[in-house]
Amino acid sequence: MPQPPDFTTTLDVQLVAFSQAGDMIAFEELVARHRDKIYARAFSMMRNEEDAIDLSQEAWVKAWQRLKQFQGDSSFATWMTRIVINLCLDQLRRQKRTRAESIEQLDEELGGVERQMPVVASNPTEGLERAELRKRIDKAMTQLSYEHRTVLILHEFEEMEYKQIAKVMNCSIGTVMSRLFYARRRLASLLQSLKKEQQS
């Protein structure tokens, strides 16, 4: 009986080419290689394990269907990440439509709240070990609305420019800039509170 091919040392570009020709074993290897990253992105946006698993799997199904459209302009991982980001945004928009907005969220959306926040005078992350810093940032991120969290994720973690974010989020560049500004200011305030809690 012929053995299935071993793709463990095959490059992504070759696996993509095999997959485009319909080789599902090659595609499964791509999934195995990038599944943690794709799941992590979905989890960072959704903040929910089950949603993140479902949406990341849906992203892989979509990727298989659209593989022919992948031209190699970016890395396969970047292309995949864009697919999962879009699916998460669609889901978050759907969820938002069905839940009542809190007053704070409405304030955030209308803008201007960030101007009333006092400027943080000392670095709230100074002297923190990396693991602790990551933990605090993650905790603070959960307290942001999905729009602010997403802008921050796309800009800082995915290294996307304002106009790219505007396109993905279907809003103006001005909105992206205000959301990013608010997210950073709110994050500073939350990290300062966490620092104070730790000290007291």
């Binding site: 599944r35 943690d36 799941y39 992590a40 989890f43 960072s44 394990e49 698993i53 990341s56 943080v120 670095n123 709230p124 992350t125 990396r130 810093l133 990551r134 933990k135 940032i137 993650d138 921050l152 800082e156 973690f157 950073r184 200011r185 994050l187 500073a188 990290l191």
Partner: peptide, 16 residues
């Protein structure tokens, strides 16, 4: 401070 703190400090999450 915020830009420096966030850059490269995304929480590590593994698929369960």
């Amino acid at each position: 401070w915020m830009k420096a703190a966030v850059a490269g400090n995304e929480a590590e999450v593994k698929l369960p």
